[in-house]
């Protein structure tokens, strides 16, 4: 309803909180939950794209089995075959589930069941849809989205679970549900794994990074393709140096949450900038504009995650404690 009908004061009276700065009193964890909800909603809508209703979708699923041990690959192939035979209903169900997860997290009364369901769904998709993002096949590339965007959804759902472990104000949102130590451990494992994946043989080869960037340019609008190609030419033949630089950056970020508040903020700022660069240049905005993207990829989720670890300005112990 527009306030045209009532006048501003009337609207304030009717809508209760309308006159108050709505965001001012909003819990930071709730804001991040809404970010996660938006990501799921985007996922759901992207899954409705025409591309997903073609054979290309089950082929994409099949391709994710490559390089995985047979015990992992067989269910992926089974899932891809199932999707191939019942493409329209199954894809519609997949898309609807993701849409409902987003809507469920955004609706306050259903946030818990939706977050819990999102963890289950994420794990299923990580295996059956992404083949663990190539982690077991030695092809995982953090610039390309490793360890898999969908597992970051699960991680965020756990960290943003609406519960408070301690009565004391935690140093950051991510520690509220699982505690400081567990939150630090999860952050460390994630970013150290990224540092590791950055320097595995497949990613430190001479043309590895430039190839990823060149591939990302395919089908993108001119400005984005130009960015990708420019970056690709910049790192052409510098695969090892680029991989080491990335690994060092990821390592610094990994230990960032153990640093005092001020230093932690600087490191988290670095994480946000790096994730944004990876998303725009390395992942070409999740390749949504080139069609065929099932999600916005890992960049936005890494940013969301970094925000969940952003130290509160007041309250809570120093991060290192």
């Amino acid at each position: 309803m527009s306030d045209l009908a009532l006048g501003r004061a009337a609207l304030q009276g009717q809508l209760g909180a309308e006159g108050r700065p709505a965001a001012a009193s909003l819990d930071p964890r709730r804001v991040l939950q809404l970010g996660l909800a938006a990501a799921w909603l985007l996922d759901g809508v992207l899954q409705f794209q025409p591309f997903m209703y073609t054979k290309a979708f089950p082929q994409m699923l099949t391709a994710s089995a490559a390089g995985n041990p047979s015990v992992i690959a067989r269910p992926i192939i089974w899932n891809a075959n199932l999707a191939s035979h019942h493409l329209v209903p199954l894809n519609t169900i997949f898309a609807t589930i993701q849409l409902l997860l987003g809507l469920g997290i955004a609706l306050r009364p259903t946030v818990r069941p939706a977050l819990a369901a999102s963890v289950v769904w994420s794990l299923a998709v990580w295996w059956l849809g992404e083949g663990f993002a190539g982690i077991l096949g030695g092809t995982a590339n953090p610039v390309d989205g490793a360890p898999g965007a969908v597992i970051l959804y699960a991680l965020l759902a756990v960290l943003l679970w609406p519960a408070d472990r301690s009565a004391q104000p935690p140093p950051y949102v991510a520690a509220r549900a699982v505690g400081v130590r567990a939150a630090q451990a999860l952050w460390l494992v994630l970013w150290l794994s990224l540092a590791f994946f950055a320097v595995i043989p497949a990613n430190r080869a001479q043309g590895a990074l430039s190839d990823v960037l060149t591939d990302a340019a395919a089908g993108e609008p001119g400005w984005l393709a130009g960015l990708d190609k420019g970056a690709a030419s910049l790192v052409a033949g510098q695969g090892l140096a680029a991989a080491v630089a990335l690994a060092v950056a990821f390592f610094v970020i990994a230990v960032g949450v153990f640093l005092p508040r001020r230093a932690a903020r600087a490191v988290l700022g670095l994480a946000i900038v790096l994730a944004a660069l990876i998303w725009v240049i390395g992942q070409a905005l999740g390749m949504i504009l080139a069609t065929g993207a099932t999600d916005p990829n890992s960049g936005p989720l890494l940013i969301l995650l970094a925000l969940a670890y952003w130290p509160a300005s007041t309250g809570g112990p120093e991060l290192a404690r």
Binding site: Q14, G16, A22, L34, A38, V45, L107, R108
Partner: peptide, 18 residues
Amino acid sequence: LVGYSIWDLDQLSGRRYA
């Protein structure tokens, strides 16, 4: 659009709107 929809859902379920 997605951002506004999510925000509206939150506000709606938070009973901001009568």
